[in-house]
C-alpha cells in the first residue's frame, strides 16, 4: 500500500478537516444543549475527540472546558485517544457471557495484544466490550464495524478478522 502523501496534500487534508469542524460546531451554535450529539458527530468524523476540537467547542459555544471533558469521559461512545480503522465490539451481556463471550476477549488479548477500550499498535483494530446488543439468540455476538457475526468461536474470530485491512 502506498502511504506516502506529498506535503501539500497533507496540508489540504488538514485544512479541509478544520473547515469541517468549524462548520460542524457552527451548526450547533443555537443548540448548545445538544453537546452530546455534537461530540457524537466529532467522534464519527475523526474516530476520536481531539483536544483542539474540545477547546474550539468550548470557545465557540461558550461551554466550560470541564463540562465538555466530563461529558466526553463519562459516555462510552467517546474516546479521547485515536481509534483503530475498525472497531471490534464483543458482547459480554449475560447471554453472550454464558455462551463464551469472555473467551473471545481472552483470545484478542492473547493473540492480538488487544484489551477492551484499547487500540492495536498498527491502529487497525479497537476493541470494545459491551453489554447486550439485543440479539442474544445468536450469542456470542461480535460486531466488526457494522457487520454482526453470530455464534462466534475463537477460531471463527480469526477468520472474520482476516477480512479486514
Amino acid at each position: 500500500m502506498d502511504t506516502s502523501l506529498d506535503f501539500s496534500t497533507v496540508q489540504a487534508i488538514i485544512a479541509n478537516k478544520a473547515v469541517k469542524v468549524e462548520a460542524l460546531i457552527d451548526s450547533y451554535a443555537d443548540k448548545k444543549e445538544q453537546l452530546i450529539a455534537l461530540l457524537q458527530d466529532v467522534q464519527v468524523e475523526f474516530n476520536y475527540i481531539p483536544q483542539d476540537v474540545i477547546i474550539k467547542i468550548s470557545q465557540k459555544l461558550d461551554i466550560p472546558l470541564s463540562q465538555i471533558f466530563s461529558v466526553a469521559t463519562f459516555f462510552k461512545a467517546f474516546s479521547l485517544k485515536p481509534r483503530g480503522r475498525h472497531t471490534i465490539t464483543v458482547c459480554l451481556g449475560t447471554a453472550c457471557h454464558v455462551k463464551g463471550g469472555q473467551r473471545l476477549v481472552d483470545k484478542l488479548a492473547r493473540d492480538y495484544h488487544l484489551m477492551p477500550g484499547e487500540t492495536t499498535e498498527d491502529e487497525k483494530f479497537t476493541l470494545e466490550a459491551v453489554n447486550c446488543l439485543g440479539c442474544c439468540a445468536m450469542g456470542p455476538v461480535v460486531v466488526v464495524d457494522d457487520k454482526y457475526e453470530g455464534q462466534v468461536t475463537p477460531d471463527k474470530l480469526d477468520k472474520i478478522l482476516k477480512k479486514y485491512e
Binding site: 448548545k32 444543549e33 445538544q34 453537546l35 452530546i36 461530540l39 457524537q40 461551554i63 463540562q67 466530563s70 461529558v71 463519562f74 459516555f75 462510552k76 461512545a77 467517546f78 459491551v130 453489554n131
Partner: peptide, 19 residues
Amino acid sequence: GGAFVCGESSALIASLEGK
C-alpha cells in the same frame, strides 16, 4: 452515549441537557 445509567429518568434528562 452508551451509559447504562441513562435509562434512569433523572440521568436521562441530564443527558438530554448535554450534561
